[in-house]
Nucleic acid binder design. Structure first.
Length: 230
DNA sequence: GCGACAG
DNA sequence: ATCTTGTCGC
């Protein structure tokens, strides 16, 4: 799959933050027009010792709950993890995996924040804009914002807000399970983002495409550090 | 200066 | 994210 090269990735921390503030102005949260069925999930794993980044995108047909395709990539990690700048550490490798996809998903769920970001431009927003596809920010923990714990039933959620603005929602995907932090990525409303994540989280805490992508990168890393190691 | 801080 | 096995429970 193709994507637009809107900018370089070898930036200073300051330039990276400025880029986010700049690109944020072009964010679009178009209203939903159809029910997404071809849903992809993206995740990344790191190998501390070799400084490698492993990325995977798994596409699932929610209608029949079957994997349609999966693409992987790995590279040498260059950018460090800095809260608010996660995109610059993960996106380059994630985009490599994206290139290897042959079927265009209808929506992509990213493991990280979307709009719920200091500059309102988290990983999901950034990736969505580059691949021009609706994306959803689906993080396991909070980056910013305040919230009340949602009720303990699957499907319950509460607003995530900062400074009088709602920036996302905290969603319980299974009874009594720790909630996920959902926010708009690109070309999608928060309502539809919640709907998609809940519908994709059939049996586990994480939506199936993301869960599978996580298993994939974990296996990649395991097999890599065990063999040729180069 | 102090505390917070996606993965 | 990662360091790490078994174990208690639905």
């Amino acid at each position: 799959m193709e994507y637009r090269e809107l900018h370089a990735w070898d930036l200073t921390y300051q330039q990276a933050r400025e880029l986010q503030t700049e690109l944020r102005k072009k964010l679009i949260f178009r209203a939903p027009e159809r029910d997404f069925q071809i849903v992809a999930g993206a995740d990344v794993a790191y190998d501390k010792p070799t400084q490698r980044v492993f990325a995977a995108i798994v596409t699932v047909d929610l209608g029949i709950m079957k994997v349609l395709e999966e693409a992987c990539a790995f590279a040498r990690g260059k950018f460090p993890y800095i809260p608010g700048l996660l995109t610059f550490r993960e996106a380059p490798t994630l985009l490599e995996a994206w290139k290897r996809l042959s079927v265009r998903p209808e929506v992509l769920i990213c493991d990280g924040q979307g709009y719920a970001h200091p500059r309102r431009f988290g990983l999901a927003c950034h990736v969505g804009m580059l691949v021009d596809l609706p994306t959803i920010g689906c993080a396991k923990t909070r980056l910013i914002g305040e919230y009340e714990s949602p009720r303990l039933r699957r499907g319950e959620f509460s607003p995530l807000r900062e400074g009088g603005e709602q920036i996302g929602a905290v969603l319980r995907t299974q009874d009594r399970v720790k909630p996920l932090f959902i926010s708009q990525g690109y070309k999608i409303s928060l309502d539809q983002a919640l709907e998609v994540v809940l519908r994709a989280a059939r049996r586990y805490r994480l939506p199936e495409p993301v869960r599978l992508a996580h298993q994939r990168v974990s296996r990649m890393k395991r097999e890599f550090s065990r063999n040729p190691k180069l």
